[in-house]
Design a protein around this nucleic acid. Structure first.
Length: 110
RNA sequence: AGAGACAGCCGGACGGUUGCGUGGGCACGUCUCACGAGGAAAGUCCGAGCACCACAGAGCAAGAGUGCAGGCUAACGGCCUGUGAAGGCGACUUCAAGGAAAGUGCAACAGAAAUAUACCGCAACGGCAAUGUUGUAAGGGUGGAAAUGCAGGGUAAGAGCCUACAAACGUUUUGGUGACAACGCGUUCAUGUAAACCCCACUCGGUGCAAGAAAUGAGAUAAAAUGCCUGCUCGGCAUCUCGACAUAUUCGCUGGAGACUGUCGGUAACGACAGCCGUAGACAGAUAACCGUUCAAGACAGAACUCGGCUUACAGACUGAACUCUUACA
RNA sequence: GGCACCAUAGCCAAGUGGUAAGGCAGAGCUCUGCAAAAGCUCCACCCCCAGUCCGAGUCUGGGUGGUGCCU
């Protein structure tokens, strides 16, 4: 995923957490809000409660892979944060489906 | 053949497509090439480098830590080789292993008695008897711990009172660099606890890379002042104003007490010399996603300034010296 | 990443190395015509594993889980 699509700063995350609309299914919570910048920026947040560093890295990478597959089709001008819910390992196809479903639900897919 | 003990090493492999981080290259393209997590990256328990703060000769107190000997190391609470103690038939393993005769504290319950003694006993003497006085610490029960254990002599009954064997402590001599050991001699001096306070010896200033460092352009300087380069003069810079950047940028940021191989020295830890190898370096944070082949079917687990250790987690595979015990056969 | 601290009953908690106080909640009993109140009784693997000690909730070491601070 290219760095222009990434959400970077702590204050950006805080802004999203304050002003966001949330959509969720059984795997993920998705927070999104409008922004001034043109390209949509996406961030991922995995809490320490989720597990050890290896598992946290793995789920973050899977989410990144799933999002980067569809990032070209997402409407511009939004900030999005994904948070995983389950405390177990994911299959990649589940991740892909959930991401697509949540983006569709929020109406952010072209 | 079975059961063990010690030391060390590895931590799936190969290939394809699409992506990510860093660096290089040029024809500057969403081109191409190279490299891209660990033995513990973990816990943050020690020791250093490095940076800033404090003090600027140094010492003391307080506080914290360490604690058999000799060696190794940059240093260490680490490692090696020994000593002692404990465990194991054995190979071997484990141990915060100084001081209780400097002082203070504590030792519940039980028990006659816990640092101080005599309940039941045993014996002598007195008494008709109940029992009293004296001697004693063999035997009894309590307890984690009760004047060293056991055998013989001895005695009114007993007692290191005497002797042999053992135990503890002190000490001569000998051996060892030393911890200590051996032999001889003397003594039996009434417990444990220092991971209770404490004493003795040695070590330590504090904080930690979220430490810390650097940085642009334009203008005003009439006069004066201060600081630095610089002892003086000139000059320059800073101190002033405006603008840009502002939860930001760059540096610190990875080659270091480095790994491997060989030779030599050393029981070993380790050291010396020679050869040879080698870019992870991010800053919301890179190793992924999807497959294919294969095998012994993949454990624990993800760098964030860097090293030396320790501790903890770990599927399985392999190697070595040919180390120990049991059984069988020759 | 770094630095500190905490863990005792369902909850709030006290606790010099020697039987683990209290309060709230819960259960049972007494009292009452029935309740409430009151009284009595019960309810603990002191986060886990080792070590020191005659004896650890307490002392020491190692784990686990949680909390706070530093941009």
């Amino acid at each position: 995923m290219k760095s222009i699509y990434r959400l970077k700063k702590n204050y950006q995350y805080n802004y999203v957490y304050k002003h966001a609309v949330s959509v969720a299914d059984k795997n993920f919570i998705m927070l999104y809000c409008e922004s001034h910048a043109k390209p949509t920026k996406v961030g991922f947040s995995v809490s320490k409660k989720f597990g050890k560093a290896v598992y946290r890295n793995r789920i973050r990478r899977q989410m990144k892979a799933a999002v980067s597959a569809v990032i070209e089709e997402v409407v511009g001008g939004y900030n999005i944060v994904f948070i995983p819910k389950k405390h177990q390992a994911y299959e990649f196809c589940d991740v892909q489906q959930s991401v697509n479903r949540l983006l569709g639900k929020a109406g952010l897919l072209q």
